[in-house]
Computed example of a mutant assay.
Amino acid sequence: MCSDRAKEAAGRAASRLVRDGMLIGLGTGSTAHWFIVAVGEAVRGGLRVQAVASSEASAALATEVGIELVDLDRRGLDLAVDGADLVDPQLRLVKGGGGAHVREKVVARAARRFVVVADPSKLVPELHGPVPVEILRFGVDATLAALEACGAPFSLRLDAGGMPRVSDSGNLLGDGQFDVIPDPEDLARRLDAVPGLVGHGLFLGMAGLVLVGDDAGGVREVVAARTLQSWRQ
């Protein structure tokens, strides 16, 4: 288990990519938290930026630290920064442990540059489950059955009281328990074809850089490996 220091180091390093006048995307989660905090500090020091938040939690934090929030429009974003649950050698991601993956994907796709912040525990040789999903309430059982045809059991997330957990958009949250995902692109295509699925947590071909913090406060840059083997060595 990595310390908060590793997450803070990565988040603060990403904040140094922000330039005056940028329109930026704010991710969600414990590592993106530090990016938002650091950008807020820079804003109080005179940096002028506007931001789009990927969740209600990130919006609340951004407001607290003084970052001006705007709606996502046709202009797109200069930069988006977010965390990840898993990162493979090709910088393919599993995201959505916090249930914000659909909005996070909208924000990341709108950005001209998408940077991931992570601690070393998130780097894996192959992606695996759980793969988060967001599902319409209508026909949920039929949707879960169709998702299971993709090769793994799927279930809804439940809160402590046994009630289904929902996203900020009011949709149901669930997870697919895949052991290993040998072909993430094929799985993404099959998931995307399921009616009733709002979105899944596979982020493919989107990240260009991963900033990995460590417990000593250092940060290293990771770009996509040419082969899977080069990652494992």
Rank of each mutant, 00 (worst) to 15 (best):
E68W: 04
A38S: 15
A188M: 06
V116S: 06
R12T: 11
R220D: 09
G45D: 14
V133T: 07
S169V: 00
S169T: 11
G174A: 03
L77R: 14
I36K: 03
K95T: 08
Q90F: 15
D168V: 09
G217W: 09
A146C: 04
S121M: 02
R113K: 14
P164N: 11
A84F: 15
S55G: 05
R103S: 09
A108Y: 12
G213K: 08
D88P: 11
L61I: 14
P130A: 09
L61H: 10
V52M: 11
P120Y: 10
S155N: 11
R19P: 00
D119N: 07
A224I: 03
L191H: 07
G99E: 02
M22W: 08
A51E: 02
V133Q: 00
A193M: 06
D119K: 02
G76A: 10
A216L: 14
L91W: 04
L202N: 01
V49N: 11
D71T: 11
E134V: 10
I36D: 02
F114E: 05
D215Y: 08
G199V: 00
L158I: 06
D78C: 13
A146R: 03
W34T: 02
C150M: 04
V131K: 05
L69H: 12
T143K: 07
E104P: 15
S169Q: 13
G27Q: 11
S3C: 02
D78H: 15
L123T: 12
W231A: 14
I181H: 05
G129K: 03
K122L: 06
V70C: 10
L197I: 04
Q50G: 03
R137M: 04
V131N: 04
F114A: 09
P125R: 13
G205L: 05
V166N: 02
G139I: 00
G98S: 11
R113I: 06
P125W: 11
L156F: 08
K122W: 00
R16I: 01
L47C: 04
R112M: 01
A57Q: 05
G27D: 10
R48A: 15
R165L: 15
R19N: 09
A193P: 05
D82Q: 13
E185G: 06
D71S: 13
L204F: 03
C150E: 13
V124N: 13
W34Q: 03
G40F: 07
D183Y: 10
R92V: 03
S15V: 08
A111Q: 11
A118I: 15
R19K: 15
R112K: 09
R112I: 00
V37E: 15
W231I: 01
D215W: 04
G21E: 02
L209A: 10
L26R: 01
N171G: 03
E68L: 14
K105T: 02
V210F: 02
S121Y: 03
A225G: 12
L191T: 10
R220A: 12
T63H: 14
R109F: 10
